[in-house]
Nucleic acid binder design. Structure first.
Lengths: 209, 209
DNA sequence: CTTATTTTTTACCAAAAGGTAAAAAATAAG
DNA sequence: CTTATTTTTTACCTTTTGGTAAAAAATAAG
């Protein structure tokens, strides 16, 4: 068995390339509508060669999903956001989510597709991980409410709104592009979005700052 | 040729039944993942018989999409909402969208899937219809801003937020169910959602009332 | 009752697509 | 250079699935 760096690096390189191609094609065509051949072509190899790295379509898809969720959860911890007051932490949280939509729109779309379909491929482990992270965030918001730093709203719905309002710039980009008259959303559009969402939500839940 | 009411009614009845089944199956499996046979089964007839009413899968899908969008646009006209002041009109608008999510979740999912995939089946005619309706709503909000009845925000982003925050209760229901610990969202959940979204958005854009 | 029309069923078909098996080629190790 | 290991290619195979053609059955018209 070969264990040196070079070999491992080449395999990893190929795998990352395939995962990236898969994320794009799955985002555009959905799980069922994405032929392995198209993913392989985008990754620059043959379907059979792709199957050598990922023995099945389902497994490839799950790896993509896992990678996306890992990335998504990075931005999840409200407590870990810079700043001390709720206003700063929430703004960073919202900006993190918008940034995710901007830099990884395909990942967002794959995830959205999966949830819309009833999350048939999402493992219980991933679901648990998501819930666990959210628990901590819900608690923190409840503390803020108890301290009178914001209106007494239901924290769960707050997160539903933040997720929806930020992800829409990735998932529904084709619609937003039409409305804004863009061929593709630009950095300034995402900045506008971040400002807007932050303003409305912070003010809307009565954050004092 | 037979032109009496009974015959026409039977055909229409079957077509509506098929459209309803298709909406459900397309929502759950996406366009490519939805076999005609499954739709036919759900509608209570054979695949070939379904093909008698809708000569192709694409055509069936487009009819579903058209029906959903028609329904969606009904709730679009901000001006037509009851009430005189911005607060009342906006609340009705938001509640209409939430009601759409509650009563036609499958339609919402089909539409979401279509947009996420880049709207490959959405005709220019439907897109134009959507834009036209939105234009009027954007103008109205701009008037409200000019009159100093609300903060000077970008109306387009306001609508993106309202759409996202309301549709999420249909499209992402599987995730929301997990977080709220429900096996299925209940009427009270939608009422909570309507109250929350209305509160945060009206307050967030500085509506005076 | 007979004929015309509509609806449903039966029998197929061709293309797409996921996956397998094994040979061939490339690469690394000794 | 020879051998072992990894990667790529070639050749198939099977199932799924959208769609067609025509016969059969049901229904309505005269």
């Amino acid at each position: 068995m070969i264990r040196n760096g070079t070999k491992e690096t080449k395999r990893q390189h190929n795998e990352l390339h395939i995962l990236s191609a898969a994320e794009e094609i799955f985002a555009q065509h959905g799980y069922n509508g994405a032929p392995l051949e198209l993913i392989a072509e985008r990754a620059g190899l043959s379907k059979q060669n792709l199957l050598y790295y990922f023995p099945s379509k389902k497994l490839l898809y799950q790896k993509v999903l896992e990678s996306v969720l890992d990335n998504w959860l990075e931005f999840m911890a409200l407590l870990d956001q810079p700043g001390k007051d709720p206003a700063t932490k929430l703004e960073h949280y919202i900006r993190g989510k918008i940034e995710f939509s901007r830099t990884r729109p395909n990942g967002s779309k794959v995830y959205a597709n999966e949830i819309i379909s009833g999350a048939p491929h999402l493992s219980n482990e991933l679901k648990a991980r998501l819930l666990q992270h959210l628990e901590a965030d819900l608690k923190l918001v409840n503390v803020w409410i108890a301290e009178g730093q914001m209106d007494p709203i239901d924290p769960a719905h707050l997160f539903f709104m933040i997720w929806a309002a930020t992800q829409t710039y990735a998932d529904f980009s084709s619609q937003i592009e039409i409305v804004l008259g863009r061929s593709k959303l630009e950095a300034s559009d995402f900045e506008d979005a971040a400002k807007f969402v932050t303003h409305v939500i912070l003010k809307g839940i009565g954050i004092k700052n």
